[in-house]
């Protein structure tokens, strides 16, 4: 019944949000985060945004937004076109499974999911780099991915709360199960 209700509601602001969030994250990564002296402890805001769509979006609107968000990141970066798109599609699959067991509204669960998600996305990206002969060494890459995951995890719960609040102000409906109609 709930599934049916989710399917019947038309998503609100979906593509405007995906493109807006994608461009905003691109600018944040390219212009702001690189100027801060964070070293390896750089939060991966793009992956947190993709995780938000995977965990909270309307059942029909999780997969494509994640893929498009990945494509936006691919367009704004030097890497192979489609690499982040594939990684975020797989992240959506993983997050959907995790959401059945863990409640993302809980602070610790959200942080844990962001930690695992960010680590896997970045490690996967390094695997693609290594396949094309541009890897930086597996142990070093693992350490860097761990640092990024550690920096991203505490941010995720705040980003999720802020995003839910912002969407509420925009008049986006909340669906049964804690989903947002985007």
């Amino acid at each position: 019944m709930l599934e049916r209700a989710n399917n019947l509601t038309h998503p609100q602001y979906r593509w405007r949000l995906v493109l807006g969030v994608g461009l905003l994250c691109g600018v944040l990564h390219a212009a702001l985060l690189r100027r801060l002296d964070l070293g390896e402890w750089q939060p991966d805001i793009f992956s947190i945004a993709a995780l938000y769509f995977s965990l909270y979006a309307n059942r029909q609107g999780r997969y494509l937004p994640c893929l498009v968000l990945g494509l936006v990141r691919d367009f704004l970066s030097l890497g192979l076109l489609g690499s982040y798109a594939v990684l975020y599609s797989l992240l959506h699959k993983l997050a959907s499974k995790a959401r059945l067991r863990l409640d993302p509204d809980h602070f610790v669960n959200a942080a844990a999911m962001a930690f695992v998600g960010t680590f896997l996305v970045n490690f996967g990206y390094h695997a693609m780099l290594a396949l094309s002969g541009d890897g930086i060494g597996w142990s070093r890459a693992a350490m860097r991915c761990l640092s990024m995951a550690c920096a991203s995890a505490p941010l995720a719960p705040f980003v999720f709360v802020l995003a839910n609040h912002g969407l509420g102000r925009l008049g986006v409906q909340r669906l049964a199960g804690g989903y947002v109609n985007v």
Binding site: A30, Q42, N122, M148
Partner: peptide, 12 residues
């Protein structure tokens, strides 16, 4: 005209 890269791994 544009500095930086959206990926944390690449520099362009």
């Amino acid at each position: 005209i544009l500095k930086g890269d959206a990926s944390s791994w690449r520099h362009s």
